[in-house]
Amino acid sequence: MTGLDVLKMQKEFYKSFYLRPKVIFRYFLSLFSSAFFIKFKTLTMNALYIILPIK
């Protein structure tokens, strides 16, 4: 396994965890709750792992 393979699998981890209908729905629901602030921050943080290119 190369270092790049490990980083690709790290991205796969975040995609698999955060891009699930259940999780996206939970975030959608949080728009209407007091948990919005926490959810929004967490989503922003983890979305970066999914969006940013692997170096």
Binding site: V6, L7, M9, Q10, E12, F13, Y14, S16, F17, R20, T42, N46, Y49
Partner: peptide
Amino acid sequence: NTINFAVNIPFSDAACCV
């Protein structure tokens, strides 16, 4: 296995480092 475990347990959030 690690990815499957994280996805199948009801964690609120998960973080994965190298």
